[in-house]
Nucleic acid binder design. Sequence first.
DNA 1: CGAAAAGTTGATCTACATCAACGTGCGTGG
DNA 2: CCACGCACGTTGATGTAGATCAACTTTTCG
Lengths: 274, 274
Amino acid sequence: MTRAPASRAIEHTPLWLKLSSYLVLSDEEKSYLSDLERTIVREPPRTDLLQQGERYRDVRIMRDGWAIRHKALPDGRRQVVNFVLPGDLIGMYCTLFESADHSVTTLTAVEVASFPPERIGELFRSFPRLAAALAWSGAREEAIVAERLLSLGRRTALERTAHLIVELLRRLSIVNMAADGHFVLPVTQEILADALGLSIVHINRTLRRLRDSGLIELNGQRITVNDVRQLASVGQFDELYLHLIRAPRRLERAFSGAHHHNGARPDGEDRPKA
Amino acid sequence: MTRAPASRAIEHTPLWLKLSSYLVLSDEEKSYLSDLERTIVREPPRTDLLQQGERYRDVRIMRDGWAIRHKALPDGRRQVVNFVLPGDLIGMYCTLFESADHSVTTLTAVEVASFPPERIGELFRSFPRLAAALAWSGAREEAIVAERLLSLGRRTALERTAHLIVELLRRLSIVNMAADGHFVLPVTQEILADALGLSIVHINRTLRRLRDSGLIELNGQRITVNDVRQLASVGQFDELYLHLIRAPRRLERAFSGAHHHNGARPDGEDRPKA
DNA sequence: CGAAAAGTTGATCTACATCAACGTGCGTGG
DNA sequence: CCACGCACGTTGATGTAGATCAACTTTTCG
């Protein structure tokens, strides 16, 4: 683990990009968020940021790199619950739970910000809109897991694989890590297998089918989606579950109450109480 | 839909029971919660409380009866994401999302309380500990879905089925709806199949195996678990994911800040700032 | 009582797992 | 700098858990 100063301006931070796709945040909210991301740590690949059964540590914000959230059975079988991408949070619930029921392991070198759980309470008290945006991010993660459950329960191997690729493409696009349908997928076929509930061999054959049909191309870790439309249709991909639609008006009504530091400051298309 | 007055005292309400297993709440928190459950509605079986694609309605608290949260593919395949049991919340995130990515349908006649989403903001501002308890409940649901993902991805049909039965037993026990290892399971084999990602026929055979091995008994909708230990071991059940351990101290530190109505009132084993 | 819904069981099929062998890129240590 | 080892990818052959099909029974309920 290496400590390092924050290099990027907050405006280019993945979490900021992600939240911006949802809410227009004020300058004060921006600077508070930037403060949460002040303490930055770098970790090499294959590091556990969190271990099943262990006590939760600080809350983490993934700033760069990939990780997986996974659960293991005593006999070694493993399920990847979700991919942790830049802009995603790790251990938001650490205040609420005694110990973690899953592990988080880095796939690449990563840069994570971390802050003590106590700040969550402070955040809710002082910056309710920002807190709501983080809650949105957390709730969206649950929706992603539920969609993956639908994949494992009711989609075929081909459909699941196509669906996952489209999902990653969409999620990475939001944080500017995918363009023209291609992105870096720093993932072995074993990890894909564990994410999709398949065997390594079968993932391999499924990717081959997708390649042979011309829907995707793979060179090393670079994946290119040639026809997103068709791939989405193979995977029965309906992006409703990513909840990318901008914050509804009633969010403003609910969260821009009296107890926050910044006086009401409408600052874009989302304004409290029309 | 039928309106009806609240009959039970708040102390016997399932949500109260569930939250009590986590936190000791004050009298003021109790009365606020009771107020949230004031508006009560009854619905018959097979009613949609929420429909995929539709706008969210009010937040609901399940007080009695069973429902399922499920997602459907355009061609009709369906996945039950979770069972909604008494004490569970429906649509906690309605403020954050524009439209629902899943449906909620009653299995039995139900009694639900409902309140407008705006009250969530109020709740966080005035009763942060209570809000934290509801957040715990929501986060726990995500943990349950993740555990089910592990089941569908990496457990066999027998293991999945055993696991689900133990899970339901544990969850129902908390709200006093199971005793001596037996409870009412108002669920068709088709629904079990959709929950476990199996075919109806295979669920039937799997239940038969569990019956023949003497682990469970079924008479109509009554299920009796004869040997919880062994059933749990078949399902590789590790209750860590249900997060039933009492609120950690740091929750108190984080959420009993300045902005709440009730002055500090230690009221049991959980007290702010020892 | 009658019809539809739900449960049950056997026969057969298939998507995916498992087993096995080999290829390929790459880091490392001699 | 080469060679060895090792992780990862690929492909064929074979096995099997669970799906599908089909027929029948039991329960539920209007």
